[in-house]
Write a protein that binds this DNA or RNA. Sequence first.
DNA 1: ACTGGATCCTGACTGC
DNA 2: TGCAGTCAGGATCCAG
Length: 272
Amino acid sequence: MPELPEVETTCRGISPHITGKKIAKVTIRQKQLRWPIPDNLSETLCGLVVKQVTRRGKYLLLKTNKAHTVILHLGMSGNLRVVNSQLKPGKHDHVDFVFADGTILRFNDTRKFGAILCTSEPILQHKLISSLGPEPLTDQFTGNYLHQLSRNKKTTVKAFIMDAHNVVGVGNIYASESLFMAGILPTRHAGKISLKRYKKLVDSIKVILQQAIDQGGTTLKDFVNEQGKPGYFQQSLSVYDRFEQECIKCSSPIKQVKIAQRASYFCQFCQR
DNA sequence: ACTGGATCCTGACTGC
DNA sequence: TGCAGTCAGGATCCAG
């Protein structure tokens, strides 16, 4: 499931293969994703050159030489691969961005939770992008920021840090892992956690995400691999999906609870 | 204004 | 073996 490190890895992986290249056409086999893909996408993008591939939260942005920017989201099962024109599309290969030199950027998404949109307005003003919280790995994301934002919030701290309006890129797995590292129970009310503890939580989120991105660097080659699924990380997880297994710190069994319909894992002794 | 729940989708897995 | 049910998950939308 793509979380921020996976999207960052995808961004770095595809960028050198499509930056500076002219779009010849866009082939859409399945337009019914999270939102329908715009009907005129191919006509709109034909002839435009990809100037820059960037990421904002879990959105990938393909900036062109005109006003238009392609907004891509991988949902939970999506992936992008760079393939050559000989490779026939397989199951769930919903969209091909075909470049003038024959390179294809192929979007595959089993569960169709992803999205492909296009906008000509300044990208930071786009509805999906403008409401996003700060990037977790920048200096704007601090303990002070989270502490202040969380005052009077009754939601759980886990739901709070997973809300992209507060901070982007913290998905279900890394939320559990970060809270474990920071020693905070996921069920705690966000508004009642001290500044000191938020500082520790922010440090933990940065460490966990940076580790995952560092590991992702080794899988970049997979994005130009015909049979390859983009390699997701073999991240070593401390609590996630370890129900009833021993806590790595205190050996007591890991607990599981549902928060906002998401499985959450924690140690009842190491987190409070 | 806030918060929690339903929702989209497919495939893997479980239980009868 | 097969079928029905459950779960996973990001982010939006909706209802209370």
